[in-house]
Design a protein around this nucleic acid. Structure first.
Lengths: 217, 217
DNA sequence: AACAGAAATTTGGTATACCAAATACGATTA
DNA sequence: TAATCGTATTTGGTATACCAAATTTCTGTT
């Protein structure tokens, strides 16, 4: 019955709700209520909330209801800074350590993303985007690095999702991905790092725009 | 009564036991037994175990007792790789963002370490060492980066502790710290990154030596 | 004696019950 | 009427009870 453990299933559901905005930033997540909603007990619900807290999506407060995180621009910017450090390192290592199979497989992932563009749910598209970046990190063959990187990608999911509202950005992202992939299959760490920097700088600027617009409303 | 939450207290105790070796690598941590040992119930014990799992000190296995992690050299090496990426970034940022007070305060920490050398417990000395590195990371003014960096420093605590048995290494570490501090007070990111690299490369080699010796026993 | 299978035990996963801190609400009084 | 104190309620923290998967042990058969 259990493809995954119950807390993970609950965390998945809550995560999607948060990212879609069904659970708004600042909103309380009362473990009792949400547990009965999902027809589970408080114990796995608690654990699911801790998982999301670890991912930065939820804020734990001592003796108070956890709330959906509402990060400031500075916090998001800090996270992007860390992600950049991790992704540059993993990109360089991937050039060095990836197998040919890794490269063709990740190339295939990218092709799949291209073909799916516009045909699938925006959230599903972001899943693919995340998987692309995470697959490159995994190709570094440093499991710890890949895992840490994944954690930060997940942590930025909502910010990415919201900041990608700009229509033109999707084409630009596609081009940046192609640049990264090109450097990767050339196994050129310098170019790859440069392209990753471009990609993540663009992300930062997109997020900055979004926050600027939000504050002027 | 509660300075900290109960799960944190339990995690602190277990963490020290693991790092000191009272809980040997590979040993099972049965939540029922350890809970009764510490006179708490399974619920906070479970949570404490999850905290340590997040820190990489404990390994969770589906439907099996968690066990104390027994990292291979490759795993430690991977962790050092990540720590390096984080520490280089935070060093460079610290050169840029640290206040003068930060620098004098961290300088004072180093002086204190020097004066304590040989006079205090090795564990306490390692606490000071960790605090030195973590203070620099905090001076980057990127809270997320500092926090992540701290997590990895803690994760390496045991390996550092075990690998520092070589008598001469302590002088060398002292010199490396001085080099880092010099570059920091000069606010010279390039030199600082170079010195940090030297320091962490030395750590990696120390750990490598220790694992080599262990395997030949 | 060796092996297969079943029953008992162990152990993590989940549900529920109980408690204490925090909050909200209402009654009482100035 | 307003302020304040006390009580009821909400809610997270903790303990315990129950369950199911996995392991071990015991037993009966070959």
């Amino acid at each position: 019955m259990n493809d995954k453990a119950l807390p993970d299933q609950i965390a998945d559901k809550l995560r999607r709700d948060i990212l879609k905005g069904a659970l708004a930033p600042g909103q309380q997540i009362k473990e009792r209520d949400h547990a009965t909603d999902l027809d589970v007990s408080r114990t796995p619900m608690r654990e699911a909330i801790r998982i999301l807290a670890k991912e930065g999506l939820v804020l734990l407060r001592p003796s108070r209801s956890p709330i959906v995180a509402d990060p400031s621009f500075e916090e998001i910017s800090d996270v992007i800074e860390v992600l950049t450090a991790l992704e540059l390192r993993s990109g360089a290592l991937a050039c060095q350590n990836a197998t040919e199979e890794d490269i063709t497989r990740i190339q295939a992932m990218q092709d799949h993303m291209d073909s799916c563009q516009g045909k699938i749910d925006r959230i599903d598209f972001f899943e693919l985007d995340m998987e692309f970046h995470m697959a490159i990190a995994a190709a570094s063959k440093n499991a710890v690095l890949a895992e840490t990187h994944s954690a930060f990608v997940r942590r930025l999911w909502r910010a990415r999702y919201l900041s990608a509202s700009r229509k033109d950005s999707s084409d630009r992202v596609k081009r940046q991905h192609h640049d990264i992939m090109q450097a990767f299959s050339d196994r050129d760490p310098e170019v790859m790092c440069a392209k990753i920097s471009v990609h993540l700088d663009a992300l930062l600027e997109n997020v900055r725009d979004k926050y600027a617009k939000e504050s002027e409303v």
